[in-house]
């Protein structure tokens, strides 16, 4: 890699680039992670006791999760809900990505992409708050549904997981649409035409031709959406009800309310393991490698 960069940019610049990259990986990613693992393996002690006889490596912090029914429940609820968010985002994004890649004229596609991107110029908290307003008990959505006579009394959208789902699908849709769009866009139009010509209907054409081709894009989008959903804090904090807590909120509480960084680090590490596990499963299931995802 150095030889390539040197040939292209010259020795000093190549060296600087690799040093920066190395610094980034070691100082910003590897060392903090190692420190977090170290934290997670130590008991929560008073400052005076650190380094004393009580200090030492232990798995107690990990055991906490398995002994605490509520936390364990939230851990698995976070897993299922994130998978559900991923699936919902995929269902919403696929037709959109297909439309952008194969149906829309370049003008329509550009306009549509712009409309998708513009909301993301606004901060995530504000965007989430806007959903909080839309979905509120006396909010515009309920008012419209009431006015249309579709419902008789307002619905509590923010009670339970529905609000969190809506908020997350909205927040992460671009991370699904773009990989899907890239994958579908690279499909030769004649493949679709050939399938139609051989008698396939719309559903079969998608199932046998478009979706298999878009697999790497589906895998990439799913992994990104899942990671973001499982690690999300703002959306469940704002749109979730007390009964729909996210695992990230528990971690946050250990760190900043409970003041137990060691316990928080153990929980955070478990969440990381969950995400990596999901990612490997998806990659295995879709038969794609890391290289396909980085594209």
């Amino acid at each position: 890699m150095f030889a390539q960069l040197k040939a292209r940019f010259g020795g000093p610049l190549a060296m600087a680039m690799l040093t920066l990259l190395g610094m980034w990986l070691i100082v910003m990613v590897t060392l903090p992670q190692l420190q977090m693992i170290d934290y997670s393996l130590r008991p929560n002690l008073l400052p005076a006791e650190v380094g004393g006889p009580k200090d030492g490596w232990t798995l107690d912090n990990y055991v906490t999760l398995f002994n605490n029914d509520i936390h364990r429940g939230i851990f698995f609820k976070t897993l299922w809900s994130s998978i559900l968010v991923t699936v919902l985002t995929l269902i919403v994004s696929y037709p959109l990505a297909y439309y952008l890649a194969k149906v829309a004229t370049p003008r329509q596609a550009a306009l549509c992409l712009l409309m998708l991107i513009v909301p993301f110029w606004i901060n995530e908290i504000l965007r989430t708050y806007s959903w909080f307003i839309i979905l509120a008990f006396r909010g515009p959505l309920n008012e419209i549904l009431l006015a249309l006579g579709l419902i008789e009394r307002p619905i509590r959208f923010l009670n339970g997981d529905a609000g969190v789902m809506v908020g997350m699908v909205y927040a992460y849709i671009l991370f699904m649409v773009f990989p899907l769009y890239n994958a579908i866009e690279s499909l030769d139009d004649n493949q679709i035409r050939a399938a139609r010509d051989l008698g396939a209907g719309t559903l079969r054409t998608h199932r046998r031709i478009v979706i298999p081709h878009a697999k790497p894009g589906i895998a990439t989008g799913s992994i990104m959406t899942f990671m973001l959903a499982a690690g999300s804090y703002a959306v469940p904090a704002l749109l979730g009800s007390p009964g729909s807590r996210w695992f990230t909120q528990i971690i946050y509480n250990w760190f900043f309310e409970g003041g137990n960084w060691n316990q928080g680090a153990a929980y955070a590490f478990l969440l990381l393991v969950l995400c990596i596990g999901f990612m490997s499963l998806v990659m295995k299931f879709f038969k794609v490698g890391l290289g396909d995802i980085a594209k």
Binding site: D188, N190, Q191, A194, A195, D197, L198
Partner: peptide
Amino acid sequence: AMIFQNLALF
């Protein structure tokens, strides 16, 4: 049935 210029085999 059509045979495409680029064949469009799957």
